[in-house]
Design a binder for these strands. Structure first.
Lengths: 338, 338
DNA sequence: ACTTGGCACTCGCTCCGGCTGAGTGCCAGA
DNA sequence: TCTGGCACTCAGCCGGAGCGAGTGCCAAGT
C-alpha cells in the first residue's frame, strides 16, 4: 500500500514540477492532487523516495525535484498513454498531406513535430530499401569526373560525383551506361546493388568500369541518405530559462553537427516503440542534461529511419511521446502511399 | 580640427565598446588610444557627439555607447579595410577547395563564414544563369504524375513533380522526352528556357505536352534555386550575453523562416560591394537590434546570389566585412572554375 | 505498523541602507 | 580652445534583518 502511494507521490511531483518548473513541497502536493493523506505522510514518502534516489533537494529547505532516475521510473511505470485529440490528429494529417515532395514531407514533419512538442525536432531521411530504381544517368563532367544520378521510385534523386583513376571516353561511357541501366533499372535498391556488385566482380582488373560499378554500389546503398537529417525548432531552446550559456551553447553546436545527432538517433532505433533517453543515459556529453525522445518510422512499419525531439529532462513525457509517435505514424503512412 | 578629433573619438569609442562590451568613459579612452588630449577635452567632444545623436548614455553616470547612427558613421567613413592575413586566406581557400559538390561548397561556405566572423552565417544558393543543361529526364510516377529531373553542368540536379491535366501514355512520353531533350540539352539555362517556351507556344491547345513544357520553363528558371539558402553558426547567438529571451528567441525563429531571410538578403544585393545594414535600418522588425552584413557573389563577379552574416549591432565591422568579402570572392572563383 | 499534528529549525529570497567608484558636467584659468 | 579641478550622480556591491516555504523528527492517535 505504501509503495503504491509512493509511486503516486512521485508521479504527482513529476507532473507538478514539469508544469511549474519549481521544486514542489509536501503541502502544495496534497492540495493540488487529491491525495487523501496529510502533508506529513507525504513528507515521509518523499524522504524515502529521496533515499532511493528518485528525488533530490536543491537546498536544504526547498521542495523536491525529480532526479533522472525519478523520471526514468515515471516514464517506465507511471505513464498512461495520452492519445492525441481529434483536432490534433486532423491537424497532423492535413499538414502532412499537403506535401508534394520527399524533401517537403521531411521538412514539414520537422516543423510539425517541433510545434507540437515545443521542443527541438530532428528527422532523419528515410532509407531507400523499399524503393526501386527508375533510372540511372551517367554524365561526364570531365574526362576523369563522372556524375552519377540515380532516380528512385519515390521521386528521390541520389547524386554523386566520381573521380576516376583513368579518363573514360564516350564509347566506354555509353557502354557503361547501358550496362548499368540494364542491371539496375526497375529493380529494388537491394537487388540493384547486388546486380551491380556481380557486374563489378565480373569485370577483370581495376579498370574505370569496375570502379564506377563499385562506387555505384556504395552510392546506392543506404549510407548517403541515412546521413541526411533535418533539425527544426531551435527557437524552443530559448525557453531554457536558467542555465543558459552552460547548457544551450553546446547544444546549439551539437545540433549543427549532424554526425553527433546521427549517433544520438542511431542508438535507439527500435521499430514501433517510442524510446526515451533521459539525461546522462546517452553517450554524448553535450546531451547529458537533456532528454531525447525518438522512434523509428518507415513504410510498412519497418523502422527505416528515426525521428524525435531533444528537450530538457524536465519535459512533458506523456505528451511528447504521444506526439512523436503520432507524427511517426502519419509519416509512415504517407511513405506507404507515395 | 576639432571635427577631425571628434571622429577619432567616435572611432575609438566604437572600437573599445566592440572589444569590451562595456560603456566607455573618457579616461579609459585617452589611456588606451594615443589621443594627445586630456579626458576633459574628450568629455566635451563626447557631449557634442551625443547631442548629434552618435552616442548615447545608458545611465546618467556611465560611459558612452555608440548609437545605430554612430555605427553608421563609423562604417561609412571611419573603416579602414582590414585585409585578411595570409594564414586566413590560405585557410579559406583550402577549406573551400575541398568541396566536391555544389551542396558541399555551400555548406562549407556557411561553416567557414560563421567561424571566421563568429556570427550567424547565411548563404543563398547561386542562381543557375551561367550553367548549361546536361540532361533532362522525364519519369512517369503515375499516369498523371510526371517527375522531371534536370541535370545541370554544375553537377546540380533540379527536380520537380508535375501533376498533369490528363494521363499521358508511354509513346507520348517518349515523344516529349526526345523533343525536350533536343531543345534543351547542351544549352545555357536561359537559352533552354527560351527554346522550351517556343516549343510550348508552337503546340496548339492545353495538351499535356504544352503543360509539361511550360512547367519546365518555370522549373528551370531561377526561382526555385534562389529560394534555397543555408544557415549556420546559430550557436554564436549564445554569446548575446544579456537581453536573451527578448532578442534571441525571435531571431532563432526568424532564422528558420527562410522566406524572411530571403527578403533580408534580397534587399541589398549590389554586386562587388559589401552592404551593411545596421539595426532598425532594415525592414524586418525581428532584426531591428541586429546588423546584417551581406555581399553578392557569383561567377565572373556577377552577383547571382547573396551571402552574409547576422549579428549584434555591436560587432567588429571591419573584420566582419573583410571576412564576408573574402568568402564571397573565393566562392565566386570556385563557381568560375567548376 | 501507519498516519497525523505539532514544533523547532534551516536557509534561500527580498528588501533596505550605506558605501564605493567610475564617470559626468561645469567652470575658471591658461 | 584646451585643461585641471570640483561637486554631483547613480549603478553595483555588500551585509544584516525579516519572511516564509519547507523540512525532519517526535510523540500521540488509530
Amino acid at each position: 500500500m505504501q509503495e503504491e502511494r509512493r509511486l503516486a507521490v512521485l508521479r504527482a511531483i513529476v507532473e507538478d514540477y514539469v508544469a511549474t518548473e519549481e521544486p514542489v513541497g509536501s503541502k502544495a502536493l496534497v492540495e493540488r492532487h487529491g491525495l487523501n493523506v496529510s502533508p506529513a505522510t507525504v513528507r515521509n514518502d518523499m524522504a524515502a523516495l529521496e533515499d532511493e534516489g528518485y528525488l533530490a533537494q536543491p537546498h536544504t529547505s526547498a521542495g523536491r525535484v525529480p532526479t533522472d532516475k525519478g523520471y526514468r521510473l515515471f516514464v517506465d511505470r507511471l505513464t498512461t498513454v495520452k492519445p492525441m485529440s481529434g483536432a490534433e490528429k486532423r491537424a497532423i494529417s492535413t499538414f502532412l498531406d499537403g506535401a508534394v515532395d520527399l524533401d517537403d514531407v521531411v521538412s514539414r514533419s520537422v516543423r510539425l513535430l517541433s510545434q507540437l512538442t515545443r521542443q527541438v525536432a530532428v528527422v532523419q531521411y528515410p532509407t531507400l530499401s523499399r524503393s526501386t530504381v527508375r533510372h540511372v544517368e551517367l554524365v561526364a563532367l570531365a574526362p576523369e569526373r563522372l556524375l552519377v544520378v540515380a532516380i528512385l521510385s519515390t521521386g528521390r534523386v541520389e547524386q554523386r560525383v566520381l573521380e576516376l583513376d583513368a579518363p573514360i571516353d564516350d564509347t566506354a561511357l555509353a557502354d557503361l551506361r547501358s550496362l548499368v541501366g540494364r542491371a539496375a533499372t526497375g529493380e529494388l535498391i537491394s537487388d540493384a546493388v547486388l546486380a551491380l556488385g556481380l557486374l563489378a566482380e565480373a569485370r577483370p582488373g581495376p579498370g574505370p568500369v569496375a570502379a564506377v560499378a563499385e562506387l555505384l554500389v556504395e552510392a546506392m546503398s543506404d549510407h548517403r541518405s541515412q546521413e541526411r537529417l533535418v533539425v527544426g525548432g531551435a527557437a524552443n531552446l530559448a525557453r531554457y530559462g536558467d542555465s543558459f550559456d552552460s547548457a544551450v551553447r553546446p547544444l546549439l553546436e551539437a545540433l549543427e553537427e549532424h554526425v553527433v545527432l546521427l549517433r544520438l538517433l542511431g542508438e535507439a532505433s527500435t521499430s514501433g516503440m517510442v524510446t526515451v533517453r533521459i539525461g546522462a543515459e546517452g553517450p554524448i556529453e553535450e546531451f547529458a542534461s537533456t532528454s531525447v525522445v525518438t522512434t523509428g518510422y518507415g513504410p510498412h512499419d519497418d523502422a527505416l529511419a528515426t525521428l524525435g525531439i531533444v528537450g530538457p529532462t524536465r519535459m512533458d513525457y506523456p505528451g511528447t511521446m504521444a506526439a512523436v509517435r503520432a507524427v511517426a505514424r502519419y509519416l509512415s503512412r504517407i511513405l506507404d502511399e507515395g
